[in-house]
Design a protein around this nucleic acid. Sequence first.
DNA 1: TATTTCAGATTGTCCGACAAACGGACAGTT
DNA 2: AACTGTCCGTTTGTCGGACAATCTGAAATA
Lengths: 269, 269
Amino acid sequence: MQQEHGFNRIERAPAYRLVYDAIEREILAGRLRVGDPLPAEMQLAEQFGVNRSTVREGIRLLEQSGLVERDGGKRPRISLPHYLDLASSASRALILHSVTFRELWEASMVLEPAIAEDAARHANAAGLAELSANLAAMEASVVRFESGAEADVIEFVRLDRVFHEILATIAGNRVLALAHEPVISLFIPAGQLILPRLRTYRRVLEAHRHIFDCLNAKDHAKARLWMHKHMDDFRRAYEMTALSLDDPLDAVSLGVSLGGSAARDREKG
Amino acid sequence: MQQEHGFNRIERAPAYRLVYDAIEREILAGRLRVGDPLPAEMQLAEQFGVNRSTVREGIRLLEQSGLVERDGGKRPRISLPHYLDLASSASRALILHSVTFRELWEASMVLEPAIAEDAARHANAAGLAELSANLAAMEASVVRFESGAEADVIEFVRLDRVFHEILATIAGNRVLALAHEPVISLFIPAGQLILPRLRTYRRVLEAHRHIFDCLNAKDHAKARLWMHKHMDDFRRAYEMTALSLDDPLDAVSLGVSLGGSAARDREKG
DNA sequence: TATTTCAGATTGTCCGACAAACGGACAGTT
DNA sequence: AACTGTCCGTTTGTCGGACAATCTGAAATA
């Protein structure tokens, strides 16, 4: 099998992909502006010289990539890919790739303290108010636990997640926030496993309180430290259960959350 | 228009989306295994009781979300979303959201040193060999620059990127690697702007060399330090050009890379 | 002015059809 | 035995046309 010349792979992209590429290019170049409705399928079909079905398939690609958004029955509009959507694809990909909890935890040891530090630098009244409300809700939740009511772990864990997301917002770095999202959203299923066994609800709340205080005091070094400690607690808790740090996450999480369309249900505008 | 009862918004997801959800669920649950070819469109259409066109539209969604991969003409196969794909969507999203270079740089000040440190911990012969080859290629490139040849900045910047990607691979944390990808891929266009003006090619190469040496010596503290310095260099260079840290990236990068299908052209298997 | 009504436009879905490409079997050549 | 050419059933890519449901916007009405 001689191969003396080495031709380039001949590529024949299907028409629906060319449609996708063309429309994507128009959007990225700003010639189709965000918020505008997409041209009618028939019109696009004529312009591209292809059948309407082909255009539709191209639009599906745009739709899944987040560049086109349908508001329910209505005419689809051009939109920015919301990075929460990306984050949820990322979470799914990480699970499918059998990422271990250790990797997840190590990443969060990098990201969360940095976010806490930035948040302390940029804290403002609005953000602190949000955090405060979150802390109050979590306090109420913990009190309910301690009074013996059946534990609504789901709600507690949700509040936990929201706390960290508010922090990421306050920090004001969208690149870090984007990196942070998949991490926090994979922590959640783990938290749902750990907390009911160890019942360390109040410990989590106290950590959040300390971090909140640091933000209030604009003490970014201390904020970083407390967050570091908070994350390390999580690892210890994980180890205390029978779970191994180096097992892939799928078994843990797949059953818990990660429904196909779950990502789309969140969102508020 | 009275509304005294408050019904839940009735949601009728289009059929093609249901097809997408159903197949996605089968894949996530492992009933459709990665590598297998997708069932024939006709067969799916019969099973779901919808038309073949509808199935096709659903498959387009799967395709764009990376769960289905076509190898050119051939029968599409089920695949894991490769996170390089996700990273390129993330980059695009960040640009569309007008992220500033400051955000990017701050994120890289968090991620890159952490990666360098982990890489020094986990360095192995294979990884070091790859880095070594990369350094040699970059040395050759720099020599060409210094001998007055017209500067192939594109190639130099590509080598720069590859160096950092190898490092992320060596570090062995896929969560960090995923977070890292969009950052490095947005640095590239910036690098293409800065380097020709400042001509700091050799300085970049020296930084890489130092980091490589630290990996060889398994000195993770020093690896982190050198990377920190390397990143800080980049910011200084950015400031030295007329570019402001707080301008959004789009103007800088949109013209340079970020072609629609660029992400698909990379990849090697 | 506020509401209702109505016609046109647009999307979602279906049906049927055909060319091109693929996969594999089979035979022929060296 | 290895390579080439041919045939055929399967599957994808693309096309054309069709229709119901819904949305849009304007005209008609109260």
